[in-house]
Nucleic acid binder design. Structure first.
Lengths: 298, 298
DNA sequence: CCCATCACTTTGTCTAGGACAAACAATGAA
DNA sequence: TTCATTGTTTGTCCTAGACAAAGTGATGGG
């Protein structure tokens, strides 16, 4: 009886990641979203507007500016937000996900892992799958909870596989982290798997670690490399800011690697910073580090 | 050169988990915190006030009301906030963490797990350790990055251990999730471990899953139970709101369990909602569910 | 003695519109 | 082309008032 007509501004802010202030000023400036009011005079956002806001969010993430986005009709928005890549490769996993058989999904992941080995599994199966899921989601072919389940199962399977690896070597000590504002940690885990395969010692700090803490950890653990992961959502400008600050604060001897979809915002990485374009490139970068280090040992 | 004098209200809200509105109204009502203003006229919170706010936060989490908290002097606050448990049992793990030897930490975790088994490991070692770490942190004896590393290592070890468990039974299907605004997923993992041990089929949805998505998942997977985890940071009021809404929207046949430090905000759970006070209680609740279900089968 | 009901107080979040700096786009000059 | 300089867009912060829900405490009845 309470919420047939929509959700509150606080709930909407949480769900879309758009600030309350921003939602209010969009209403004032662009006339959208235009929530109904409850008896108390408070905003209630109907589900359809919530859905439209998802498109808006997507377009903003793609780099469009609010003014342009709001001058489009809802239909135009949803059209442009959706279909960058229907692509050919829709493997069985997507269908499995939609069939809501969590046990089968897990088995399939384990099977593939066993068949292809960790490295090929990560680069050839997981990585494209994540892209496919992202696309399927914006096209509305898949639900958020399905994406979440996939991500969880994947983490579980990868942790399991890594546990069976021999004790990590010590070659470069690599600190893996995500900065505040970046909640997506799956990329870190994939990177960790690749690096452990090559015998590197990984120190995972997880997501949303403050910059000062990453620096402190780098010193405390004597890291040789600090690797940061950025998703596409991370704004280009703050991203470049973090990289600049981190590079300036880290000792010169410590390498700084930036990866993930948001690393593309580094058009030309500053000196002493490496952009990791893909998980394959990670292996190469590691090789490069090792050869460089073997030329001039301590 | 920029921020010698303090941090912005947005940063403070992020760091303390207290809403911007709340910070402003505390200033208006209680005269604390009393930030300085920069050239722009915007609030700048000095580090000492940030530290004091941590005490305030702690006291509120313990159930004290704001009015009482702010009538105390800063010294009284820090005294009451800190030392609920220096406790006798400061096991080697804390020291290990401070020694910055990630390999040894991991080995120790694995050892304990092997020695004690999953269940005892979770209830007797991990759970108190998390409390101890939390306390050490508010006392400033430990850094955030150390906490992060511990959490990551723990996740890894637990996933590993769960992977070796026999295929999950199917008794009750339990959906595990955290709602938007709650980024802490460790509790979910611990719960999952306990439940899998008892043969329940867990469907982990991870953190920050929107309410509508949890509902959709519950239907899609035919869940018998929806288990939500709340950390202490989760505000009491919104927490109760989510519980009320979820309970109303879920079919009556589906049980709703709430656990984690923030579940204490449910003084008396509404009908059809169970409060899981601890990880041990989880086992009992599962037993209760099973007996209740065996009395009246479909 | 315990529990329900009532009034009273506390408290967090919402509302409104105004203001402004930082980010972006488009211009002009070298 | 590349770099500096405008003008416009845009998110966040500001003030101050309002109100419902949660908590507190006192009353009365079993």
């Amino acid at each position: 009886m309470s919420d047939m007509s929509g959700i509150s501004i606080a709930a909407l802010a949480l769900e879309t990641g758009i600030g309350k202030d921003t939602l209010r000023i969009w209403e004032r400036r662009y006339g959208f979203p235009q929530p109904v009011r409850d008896a108390k005079g408070e905003r209630l956002y109907p589900p359809e507007q919530v859905a439209q806001l998802r498109d808006v969010r997507r377009l903003l993430d793609q780099g469009m500016r609010p003014g342009q986005v709001f001058s489009l009709s809802p239909d135009e928005r949803s059209e442009r937000a959706c279909p960058p890549t229907p692509e050919g490769d829709d493997p069985g996993l997507l269908q499995l996900l939609r069939r809501h058989d969590e046990a089968a999904l897990r088995e399939e992941l384990r099977m593939r892992l066993a068949r292809e080995g960790i490295a090929r599994f990560v680069t050839d199966a997981v990585s494209p799958m994540l892209v496919a899921i992202g696309n399927a989601w914006v096209r509305g072919e898949i639900e958020i909870f399905e994406e979440h389940l996939y991500s969880e199962q994947l983490q579980s399977v990868l942790h399991e596989a890594m546990g069976q690896l021999p004790a990590p070597g010590s070659a470069p000590k690599i600190l893996l982290a995500t900065l505040p504002g970046e909640p997506h940690g799956l990329g870190l885990l994939l990177a960790q798997a690749m690096l452990r395969l090559e015998g590197a010692a990984c120190i995972p700090l997880g997501t949303q670690t403050p910059e000062s803490q990453v620096l402190a950890a780098a010193e405390a653990y004597g890291a040789d490399v600090v690797a940061l992961s950025y998703s596409e959502n991370f704004g280009a400008v703050p991203m470049r800011g973090t990289v600049r600050r981190m590079r300036a604060a880290l000792p010169e001897a410590v390498a700084l690697w930036c990866g993930g979809g948001g690393a593309g915002h580094l058009k030309r990485p500053p000196a002493g910073v490496s952009r990791i374009a893909s998980l394959d490139a990670l292996k190469e970068e590691l090789l490069r580090w090792r050869t460089a280090r073997s030329m001039q040992p301590a």
